[in-house]
Structure formats: C-alpha cells, structure tokens
Write a protein that binds this DNA or RNA. Structure first.
Length: 554
RNA sequence: GCCCCCAUAGCUCAGCGGAUAGAGCAGCGGACUUCUAAUCCGUCGGUCGCAGGUUCGAGUCCUGCUGGGGGCGCCA
C-alpha cells in the first residue's frame, strides 16, 4: 500500500539522518502518514517531526528538514515540502500517477485487496435471529453489516466463514411450537389459547392453515408433547426456508447455518460443562448451576443451568463459542449483535477466559437501532403489534441496492433513520444511485466507442493524462486499498460508502471536463479510455464490497 | 444507583491528537444542438451540547454536568 511505502521511506530517512548525525539519537515514534484535509498541502502528510520534537530536543521544522534531506529518491514522490509548525507534505508525481492506471488495470479484481489477514481464519456470525417467524426490518442492518464485513475481511486477506446461528432450542422455541399448535387447533375450530408471551403474528395463522390443508387434523389426536415437537420442527423448517430466501434477496448468503440444538445432541454441551467444572469455574447455588464469573473479574456470577434443570441461552452460547474456538479453531471470531445485547459482551468474554480462550480472539460488533420512517412518521418495529415491517417487504419495495447502501452509510454506533419514501424516490435527494450512475455512464462511453468503431489499444500512452481532473480521478482510484484497510481495522463499513461517493464525484467532474472519445486526438482518447476502464473496474469493486450491483445502464 | 453508546450547518450525518471543521439533502443562482442533466458549477449556512483539564496543538483524549437511546433477568 502506498501509504505504508511512504511511511517506510520516511522511517529510513529518519534513521539515516540519525546515523549521519543530522539528528540526535532517540527512538522515534511510529510514523503516522495521512491525507491532509486541505489538498493544497499535498497527497500525504506526516507530523513525525512534531512528535519527535521533545525526544530530539530540536525544533520540529529542523527535524523535518533533516528527514527530508535524507529521503531516498522514489518514483512516486513529486514534491516534498516542510511547512511550519513542522509538517512534511508529500505530493505525488504526475507522471507516476498517470502510469498507475495500467497497474490498476493489470490488478483487475485484485486491486484493492490487501494482505492484512495473512490467511488467518476468521468467522463472522451475523443475523442469527430466532427462527420463529419472518425477519423484521431491524434485522436487515445486522445482515448488511455482517455481510459487508465479511466481504471486507476477505478482501483484506482473511479466510472468512459466514455463519448463521440458529436458535432452535430453548424457551422461545418452546413458545413458538405451543403457539403454532394453538393456531392449528383454532384453524380446526377448537378453542385454543396462545401461551403467555407467545407468538401472536398473523403468519402463524397462515401456517396453521397450510398444515391443515396439507396434513389434516391428525396432530390433534397425537399426544400434546409429540404434536408440539412435530409442529416445532415444521415451523423451524418453514421459517428457515423463508429466511434464506429473504436474505438472498438482500444479497446475503451463509456458508453454514449452525444449529443450537445440535450442541445438545452431539454431546458438545456436556463436554463443555465438564471442562468448566474441571477448571473450577462452575458452582451450584439455589439449585442452579452458575459460572463463577467473579473469579475472573466479572461483575457478578451468571446462571448457566436454571434450577429447573434447563440450560439458558448463555449455556448454549458458551458451548457454541467453545465449538468455534477450540473445536473449529478460528483465529478470530466476530459476532454482530444489536446494542441491546451489549450487556452480554463482558459475560461472553469471561466465559471464554473460563474456557482458556484469549477473549481478545472474540470481537463483538455492536450496532444501533434502525428507525423506520414512512410519511415522516416512525413505524414501530415491534413483534407484538400487527404492523411488523419485514425485511422482505422493504427489499421488495425499495430494492436490494438502496437498502444496503442506506444501511451502510452510518457508523455502527449511530442510529439510522431509514426513510422509506426517500429510499424509493429516484431523485437527487436519494444518494443511492449516484455511484451506480457513474458506472453506467462509463458503460455508456464504451457502448458509444463500439458504435463509432473505436478499437481500444492496449498500449495507450498514459503520460498524456495530465489534466487536473484526470489526475484527481487517479488519486481516488489509488485510495481503495487504504479504504479497505481503514474499514477492516475499525470494522466500520460505512467508510466504503463515503469513498464510493467521492470516487463517483471525481469521475463526474472528469466527465464534465474531459471528452473521452475525440477523433481529433485519438492518442489522448486511448489514454482516457484506459482511465475510464480503470474507474469502471474500481467502482464495480467497491459496489461489490458493499454487495450492490454495478449496472451497465440506468 | 451503576455500565455502554450518542450529541458537529435548517435536516441526515462524516471527521485517524494536527493546518482555515467537511459531505449529502434542503434553500438561492447558474450550466444540456455534446460520450447518459440520476450530472456539474457557484452561493448561503457552525458558541462542534455545557464547564473544566491534559497537550506545542482538542470536534477528537481525561473529569464533571445536561439531554437522548440502550443495558444491568434462573428472557434472548
């Protein structure tokens, strides 16, 4: 990555300055290279001279001068300035910039990939909503965030596994099954009441009707427990089928759907309890089994197995993470959770310690809520009330690309206001289509080129690209690896949306200033065709990272 | 009561301890006989919630306060 190259160049220069006695001996801070806010200061800047002032007991500007004087020549460096109070500003060389078009074209789909992961195994677990009904729109943010993080990690050189944890065991599932049986009985004219805190959604009535039509009334003659068991399994299968379909419509796919129930069936749960017990982190109190979290610095002990003998969700989660880390050996696990699960994070970390797993290997990405607006009014996303807004409905209404883009434009910790009316509007108020339009515009240039009989030369003279708008565009193409690095380092995919917008803007400005196809100047046209091809490729790449399509025409 | 997140332009939000705090939208004014005007250009718009502190330098870090959201369960 260019930024790293520059940091290395500066580091070498600083050492050389020390060796030659231009600078005193001191152990220099890590050199931070960034883009100055004001482009008139150049492409890259570092404050290392100011950082070193105290250590070197020298004026920052003097330090900067000494570093600059010992800078080895590099093709990409066009101009170096030392500016008070001690910034070193680097401007890229025009001729080097124009040649990068060929490099980007040559890298193709690999452009933007970085080797941060070094092939380490990372699992991203996301969505994981209870399989008790359709996914409501709040879950869309989880899906888009997790999926995009997985895309980014893959681009950053990690070996990524995408997983959905299916909570097909426990109390909620029990209530789900009881609710479905009650609806089934009602569908057959029986007096049946839903359990307390049961599932009241209308979809269960529909499903009960389906079961009656397909299989008649014979579940009524079955023992109740057996009927619940069969109907629960039916309901989960049905839910998962719909979930998979609805998530696919959003462009979200999983490598594995992991069953919570399987942890109990294959002995994992028992194994984990034995391990915890042998390590001395379980104790009994009030008839329940507790994790002795306080022994590991936790605020309070946590119930693992209730006094009625049933394991709680925390019990499953411990076993599940044991499976992730110890059995499957992921180097790093990322769980994507809504903020209302924040209290569970320290608990989970403590549980990992109890298992002997370094808690740093688990990162929980928390994201805030989505506020859905229609006609300027907030639509409540509660499961209780009848007006639940499902993911499928919103995707059908506004489209996959708009949903993904809008859910990605905010930092994870910011609440998102999702305006349904704005999302469907195809106007300048809607930021979604801006990036795609740039891609389509470029496609249009190539269509025109073909119509007009241009043959695209592979050996274009790129040094003809000297217009400020051309070089400005190249500069943006060059930033993709840095953006991937930033988004992965912070696990904040919203940086992609801002980059995509900036890149598209750089293209639209170029488009205004520079005619690509010009019979009066075919050599320049060929160079611009290469530039525009590189831009199309990078736009497609960033759209792909966001899980959006790159349309050829709009 | 304790813990976490948020507070930046009219609105929605970016902002990596650096230089004159940015973008989109909205408002106002311009640009299509041209490779797509879903575009571009100009302009208006700020006590970065408040008060201290650390620092050569704070929207950014620390402390306190105010306001909003979330959490503190043998629910998930």
């Amino acid at each position: 990555m260019l930024r790293d190259d520059i940091a290395a160049l500066l580091t070498v220069a600083l050492r050389k300055a020390q060796k030659r006695g231009d600078l005193p001996k001191f152990s220099p801070p890590a050199i931070a290279v960034e883009h100055p806010k004001d482009p008139s200061f150049g492409d890259y800047t570092t404050n290392v001279a100011m950082q070193s002032a105290r250590l070197a007991r020298m004026a920052p500007v003097k330090i900067a001068d000494a570093i600059v004087q010992n800078l080895a020549p590099a093709a990409y460096v066009g101009k170096v300035d030392v500016v008070p109070p001690g910034f070193i500003n680097i401007t890229l060389a025009d001729d080097w910039l124009s040649q990068q078009v060929a490099v980007i074209r040559q890298d193709g789909e690999r452009w933007g990939n970085i080797d941060k992961g070094g092939g380490r195994k990372v699992q991203v677990e996301y969505v994981s909503a209870n399989p008790t009904g359709p996914l409501h729109f709040g879950g869309a943010r989880n899906a888009v965030l997790g999926d995009t993080l997985a895309n980014l990690l893959a681009a950053a050189g990690y070996k990524v596994q995408r997983e959905y944890y299916v909570n097909d065991a426990g109390l909620q599932i029990r209530k789900f099954g009881e609710s479905l049986l009650a609806r089934y009985g009602q569908a057959l004219g029986q007096e049946a009441t839903l359990p307390e805190d049961g599932y009241h959604g209308a979809y269960l009535q529909e499903w009960a009707g389906e079961i009656v039509r397909a299989e008649g009334n014979h579940y009524l003659s079955m023992p109740r427990e057996e009927a619940i068991s069969v109907l629960t399994a039916w309901g989960i299968r049905r839910t998962l089928r719909d979930l998979e379909r609805d998530l696919a419509a959003l462009g979200v796919h999983f490598d594995r759907w992991f069953s919570e129930k399987s942890l109990y069936e294959d002995g994992t749960f028992g194994e984990v309890m034995n391990l915890l017990r042998s390590r001395g982190f379980l104790h009994e109190k009030d008839g329940a089994v507790w994790l002795t979290a306080t022994a590991l610095g936790g605020a309070k002990d946590e119930v693992v197995i209730r006094s009625n003998g049933t394991p709680g969700y925390f019990a499953s989660d411990i076993a599940y993470h044991y499976d992730k880390f110890i059995r499957r050996g992921f180097d790093w696990v990322i769980d994507v959770w809504a903020v209302d699960h924040q209290g569970h994070v320290p608990r989970m970390k403590t549980a990992l310690q109890a298992l002997g797993v370094d808690p740093k290997r688990l990162t929980v990405v928390l994201y805030d809520m989505v506020k859905l607006l229609r006609n300027g009014q907030e639509v409540k996303l509660s499961k209780r009330s009848g007006d639940i807004v499902t993911l499928a409905e919103v995707v059908a209404e506004v489209g996959k690309d708009a949903v993904r883009f809008m859910l990605l434009t905010r930092g994870n910790e910011a609440t998102i206001e999702f305006d349904l009316d704005l999302a469907v509007r195809e106007s300048s108020e809607n930021p979604v289509y801006y990036v795609q339009y740039a891609h389509a515009r470029i496609a249009s240039i190539f269509r025109k080129a073909q119509e007009d009989g241009w043959t695209i030369a592979s050996d274009a003279n790129l040094s003809l690209l000297v217009h400020p708008a051309e070089l400005h565009l190249v500069r943006h193409l060059l930033m993709l690896p840095e953006v991937v690095d930033l988004a992965v380092t912070r696990l904040q995919p919203h940086h992609l949306t801002y980059y995509a917008r900036d890149l598209a803007a750089a293209f639209h400005q170029f488009y205004r200033d520079c005619q690509v196809l010009d019979r009066q100047n075919e050599a320049l046209s060929q160079a611009r065709l290469q530039l525009v091809a590189a831009t199309k490729q990078v736009l497609a790449q960033v759209l792909a990272l966001m899980g959006m399509s790159a349309p050829e025409r709009m």
